[in-house]
């Protein structure tokens, strides 16, 4: 019987003839066995699976390849979905690589944002300096690599505006962050210049609370949650790969959404 799903425009049957030897070589069970296994990994890289570090470096090479593909696919003009202010979760969800009891609040009065790397004006910034720049509010979803998400409302200066203001080299590859909780992070310049990437100082119209990164954190709608460092103390613009806390533990670096 003719399938009801058969398309009107079918491929040229000559394709099958051209690939006859290949089709003959199909072995269904072989496919299943090789499909997803360490054996496949060995074929892929020629590495010895008995050495865990060889497996790890193979997986990391794959992860870097995926990062490059994601960077190629990234559309700097495409906006992430936004939501009405009524959907903002108050307070936001806390997360860190340690428990909330170990949060060390930062003194906003003495806090300074240090700048380094390919930036013309590297004078440190106070919180008031940051808030004097044009502000933007976005209501976006925070999506964690662990599978949970929530909708949050963030206000701050767009990172693009800030980088332009301090004369950063916008052709550089990376924008790197250092934080008070020793959670280094970095993003690609295209994502840094995205209109939904902020140096956030407010949540739901209120000053950012201590556990969520007071006085300033990165908040970008185009990356997974772990690419949003809290309690940021320094920004560097660089062409040298800066890595990050989870990235050095095997998480993918690009982590785009």
């Amino acid at each position: 019987m003719r399938s009801p799903f058969r398309p009107d425009d079918v491929p040229d049957p000559a394709i099958l003839d051209n690939h006859r030897p290949l089709i003959k070589s199909f072995e269904r069970r072989g496919l299943i066995r090789r499909g997803l296994s360490l054996g496949a990994l060995v074929m892929l890289t020629g590495c010895d699976v008995k050495r865990p570090e060889a497996v790890e470096s193979a997986l990391l090479a794959i992860s870097r390849f995926n990062d490059e593909v994601q960077a190629l696919l990234f559309d700097p003009n495409k906006l992430a979905p936004t939501y009405p202010a009524s959907m903002i979760l108050k307070p936001p969800k806390f997360n860190a690589y340690y428990d909330v009891m170990d949060v060390k609040p930062v003194n906003g009065a003495t806090w300074r944002l240090e700048l380094s790397g390919l930036i013309a004006d590297r004078r440190p910034w106070t919180i008031q300096d940051l808030q004097a720049l044009p502000q933007r509010t976005i209501v976006i979803k925070h999506i964690c690599v662990e599978g949970w998400s929530y909708i949050g409302g963030w206000t701050g200066v767009p990172l693009r505006t800030f980088l332009q203001h301090v004369g950063a080299d916008l052709r550089a590859k990376y924008v790197a962050f250092k934080t008070a909780d020793d959670y280094p992070s970095s993003i690609d310049m295209a994502s840094a210049l995205h209109p939904q990437t902020l140096l956030a100082t407010e949540y739901a119209g209120e000053t950012l609370a201590d556990p969520f990164g007071y006085p300033m954190r990165l908040r970008t709608a185009v990356k997974l949650g772990y690419k949003n460092p809290k309690w940021v103390t320094a920004i560097e613009v660089t062409n040298k790969y800066p890595g990050g806390y989870w990235e050095s533990r095997g998480f993918s670096w690009f982590a785009g959404l």
Binding site: L36, A40, A58, L59, I62, N66, G250
Partner: peptide, 15 residues
């Protein structure tokens, strides 16, 4: 194809 599959394994382990 394999690299995408393998990277899923990598992420699920590290999570």
């Amino acid at each position: 194809t394999l690299s995408l599959a393998a990277s899923f394994i990598a992420v699920s382990c590290i999570a």
